[in-house]
Simulated scan of single mutants.
Amino acid sequence: MARGRVLVTGASTGIGEATARRLVADGFEVIATARRLGRIKELGRQIGCEFCPADLTDDDSVANLMKFLALQEPLTALVNVAGGAIGVDPVAEANIDAWQAMYDKNVLGTLRLTKAVLPMLRESGGDIVFVTSVAAHEAYPGGAGYTAAKHAEAMIPQTLRLELLGEPVRVIEVAPGLVKTPEFSLNRLGDVDAAQAVYRGIDEPLLAEDIADVIAWTLTRPRHVNIDTVTVRPVAQATAALFAREGTSQGELPSDDLAAADE
């Protein structure tokens, strides 16, 4: 018998993909969703999960996902992973379109799906996990567009937890620090060399599997236990912008990497 039925967003790569894999291995039934159908279809073939493509920034796409879910057994959990960062512009040079896109992906996309799924979780009792970032709780030069979006996203679980008090829904936030994934820094910086430089000199950055492990842990606590917020960093990271790097002074962060060193 399955331990639960979980919808995982952003499942085409990185933390979302790793979470889908881990939860299936732990005995959960998983529905993977992401924009790229080919990726989640292949994931489904590999691990035996169900899948349905969706662009969470689009109302019609989310409505189609909900129609798919309506034909399935009820969900017991939603894991919100989808999001991302664009650019490292200082505030004085902010790209308004990039800020808007980050807000749409990280905040409104998360809100859109959470709002749609919430009724079924309130009815039967369930869990909602929000994968935010240390950027949701800190600031650093060149990161204002992303930190603004992540701070806003973090307000969803913090407020929802108050609004659902007394109901059988657990609201969980997992805030990763530096996680080495194939696409996060590449999508943010748009350059392979710049993306690789983010992790240069870091002794064992986190991997997507480390965050998936934490997510699985939060979902498998006894029902009376709610993991409100857990921050996860590699040992070599002290803040969103302060690292111990080989070949540099203790805590030094090269300026080219400054605004890209968080998940």
Rank of each mutant, 00 (worst) to 15 (best):
residue 147 T to C: 14
residue 57 T to R: 15
residue 230 V to F: 07
residue 86 I to W: 06
residue 254 P to K: 05
residue 55 D to W: 00
residue 95 N to P: 03
residue 67 K to M: 14
residue 93 E to Q: 15
residue 54 A to C: 03
residue 149 A to S: 13
residue 62 V to C: 12
residue 99 W to N: 09
residue 222 P to L: 04
residue 112 R to N: 10
residue 14 G to L: 02
residue 209 E to V: 10
residue 228 D to T: 08
residue 182 P to D: 05
residue 126 G to K: 01
residue 140 Y to V: 02
residue 95 N to Y: 06
residue 97 D to H: 11
residue 140 Y to G: 10
residue 95 N to L: 08
residue 184 F to L: 04
residue 71 L to F: 12
residue 257 D to R: 13
residue 84 G to A: 07
residue 87 G to N: 00
residue 35 R to Y: 02
residue 102 M to D: 05
residue 115 K to S: 13
residue 237 Q to L: 07
residue 166 G to H: 12
residue 43 L to F: 08
residue 79 V to P: 09
residue 77 A to Y: 01
residue 222 P to Q: 11
residue 190 G to C: 05
residue 248 T to P: 07
residue 201 G to K: 00
residue 131 V to M: 04
residue 142 G to N: 09
residue 14 G to S: 07
residue 147 T to G: 13
residue 162 L to K: 13
residue 118 L to I: 01
residue 260 A to H: 06
residue 179 V to I: 05
residue 10 G to K: 03
residue 228 D to H: 05
residue 73 E to A: 14
residue 156 I to T: 07
residue 133 S to N: 05
residue 132 T to N: 15
residue 138 E to W: 03
residue 240 A to S: 11
residue 211 I to D: 04
residue 130 F to I: 09
residue 141 P to Q: 11
residue 150 K to T: 04
residue 83 G to F: 05
residue 156 I to D: 06
residue 47 I to F: 02
residue 167 E to Q: 15
residue 116 A to H: 10
residue 180 K to R: 15
residue 165 L to I: 11
residue 150 K to H: 11
residue 215 I to L: 05
residue 112 R to D: 08
residue 50 E to Y: 12
residue 107 V to Y: 01
residue 255 S to A: 15
residue 177 G to L: 01
residue 249 S to H: 00
residue 61 S to H: 02
residue 40 I to C: 10
residue 79 V to I: 14
residue 143 G to K: 06
residue 48 G to E: 05
residue 155 M to R: 15
residue 162 L to C: 09
residue 218 T to Y: 07
residue 169 V to E: 10
residue 51 F to M: 00
residue 194 A to N: 02
residue 243 F to T: 01
residue 152 A to N: 12
residue 107 V to L: 14
residue 187 N to A: 06
residue 157 P to E: 10
residue 233 R to L: 12
residue 210 D to I: 11
residue 230 V to N: 03
residue 216 A to I: 08
residue 164 L to T: 01
residue 144 A to F: 12
residue 233 R to Q: 10
residue 167 E to K: 15
residue 246 E to N: 08
residue 3 R to D: 11
residue 204 E to F: 12
residue 114 T to N: 02
residue 159 T to M: 05
residue 171 V to K: 00
residue 200 R to G: 10
residue 145 G to H: 07
residue 177 G to H: 01
residue 89 D to T: 08
residue 28 F to H: 10
residue 137 H to C: 07
residue 38 G to I: 05
residue 222 P to M: 05
residue 203 D to S: 13
residue 34 A to Y: 00
